[in-house]
Amino acid sequence: MNEDYVIDAFGARWSLDTRELDAGARERLHVLWERCRVRGLGARDVGVEPFLVTDSDPYAVSREITLASLRRRRGSAVLLHAAGVSRGDRAIALVGQSGAGKSTASRVLGRHFGYLSDETVAIEEDGRVAPYPKPVSVITDPAAPWDKGEWSPDELGLRKASEPAYLTGLVVLERDPGRTVPELVELPLVDAMLAVIAQSSSLPLLDRPLHRLAELASGSGGPYLLRYSEIGDCVELLGALLDPDAAGSRSERHPWTSTPPVPNSPDGLIVRAPWRDAVHGDGGTLVLIDETPVRLGPVGEVLWRVAAAPMSRDAAYAAVVAALGEHPDAARAVDDGIATLIELGLLHAPTAP
């Protein structure tokens, strides 16, 4: 490549320096990354950084570009390890759990919808999905799942996405080879958030990260769980989410208001410890402590809620009973709950044994 070759990887722009590759490897790289190329930009333009390509393995290059781009975009966008497809200005992100292939979903769904990415969906603050139509990584030998080949979206016949596209649905994939009929169901918000957080990058660096993720997850009536055997059987179900007339109600959620931490609690009292963010919605309450999300059970949820100001353990016990009802083991459950929340860093009790 004699001219500057600039690509855009979900908002991170790179000028690929391929001088160390032979002519064949350079030409193959050109074919693979053509969908991401930004014509008219040069290596010296604002926002473009150099990227030295030394490996002739296309899959290794793809991983290096993705990781470098994640480092550049951390803290500025919601970064999901997910596949993305769109129709018009509507986009959905497909988050794969174990056994659910994002690349397979991209290859199949991308023939029906616009192909955004097979592995990284970046959502900007306004909800726009920054496209990353990179070459698709495909396992060529089931016995060696980490040894993947690369094919360009054009070689695979994937449709080009319209821009801009905004996230209107978040879908957690659950592949079950024994299932005969696919099913798309609403997923409790907190369940979905935990699944998505496990497949996200640098989420705690964002401002109010749980709130931002909850807003994205609850679009179009979601979040959703897709149970399926073959992703090709799901085109109609997912197409309904991309229908311009699809506008379901959002899952109920309630933000918690942050209060300044109390540095010292009087003897025998408990109080909330410092925390980053928290969301209450379908499925319970999720609290972010530093970079760790913690899901609260019924007792813990009551304890954490009422401990916004210092309170005695007797008062905490009364609050739990008032909220959940009398129980023969209530005292032990409250004591265990307080101990667990202190251990997790959610409650502060300097003089607690």
Rank of each mutant, 00 (worst) to 15 (best):
L213V: 03
I338P: 10
S86R: 01
P263K: 09
E27T: 13
V334R: 10
E252Q: 09
A246D: 09
P260D: 15
L32Y: 00
S162R: 06
R71F: 04
W256N: 04
S76W: 05
L286N: 03
V321T: 15
L194E: 02
A273D: 13
L16Q: 08
R72I: 12
S15G: 12
K102R: 13
A93F: 00
P182S: 02
L269H: 15
D55M: 04
V31W: 00
G96N: 07
S258M: 12
T285A: 05
P350L: 15
D290P: 02
V262L: 14
T285G: 03
E3A: 09
L341I: 10
Q97I: 03
T18F: 06
A352M: 08
V171A: 01
D277A: 08
V31F: 00
A100W: 01
S56H: 07
P188H: 04
S249V: 13
S258L: 13
Y166V: 10
R128P: 00
A198N: 02
E64Q: 15
H327V: 10
A307T: 13
E125D: 12
G40R: 11
Y228F: 04
E49M: 12
G221V: 05
D233N: 06
L303S: 09
L109K: 06
P188L: 08
G110R: 02
V46T: 12
A23D: 11
